[in-house]
Amino acid sequence: MDFPGKKDLLKAESFSVFYGDNEAVRKVDIEIPEGLVTAIIGPSGCGKSTFLRAVNRMNDLIPSCRAGGSLRLDGQELYTQGLDVVMLRKQVGMVFQKPNPFPKSIFDNIAFGPRIHGVRDRSKLAGLVEKSLQQAALWDEVKDRLGDNAMGLSGGQQQRLCLARAIAVNPKILLMDEPASALDPRSTSKIEDLIEELKGKYTILIVTHNMQQAARVSDLTAFFYEGDLIEFGETSQIFTKPGEKQTEDYITGRFG
């Protein structure tokens, strides 16, 4: 993909992911440029989440799961012996479909990541927490009750908290797996606004079922179907004149 002034950050070559014998992502070739928002769309079960979770090697948690081919982040092969997954996950933040704050205070939730990575100083932590919450547009709502349990927040607030928690370790890439699908429309639009704000600072990969959302927030769109990457291109082009019949069918079936 050619974007003037944007270098490719993530590059997959003939990249596959297997669950046992089932090839959930099949020989995908894709180059994702830095600093943009890339939406991944496709019918459910087509391997979107699997691909996303391959990027920060969250698939390692599933015993039957293994990868083939090559997946490079900034030139570094990810599926190789001796890769430091801790460093990788520090660079690649993730927000999940269902908000999953820890049953701890708001402050401790945000400070969790920085603490792991060695920040002990209380005032530095406080600064990081404030900055992250501000970036996640949550600061004004919670600044008076940082000590409260995060489980007491509303669903939308919890999801923004999770976003702030991911941001707090200062990642390069943010992975979002249907981050708004469990939220009400109001909270959803807040999340979308946020993605708009964060664009440029982070490279964002977002999986979504919602075509309008993909069209609204993303610069690029990738369409997966049954484990194959069917089409990848600028969002405006994919949604107006898709190159493949399958893409067109899927989008028209779902759009509007």
Binding site: R72, D74, G75, Q76, L78, G82, D84, V119, N170
Partner: peptide, 23 residues
């Protein structure tokens, strides 16, 4: 966070992902 500052200027992150042989 000592690294935080360097992260900003450091555009090349790929090289920092590998562990050294000793580690």
């Amino acid at each position: 966070m000592a690294e935080a500052k360097t992260d900003k200027d450091d555009k090349v992150i790929g090289s920092r992902l590998m562990m050294g042989a000793r580690e």
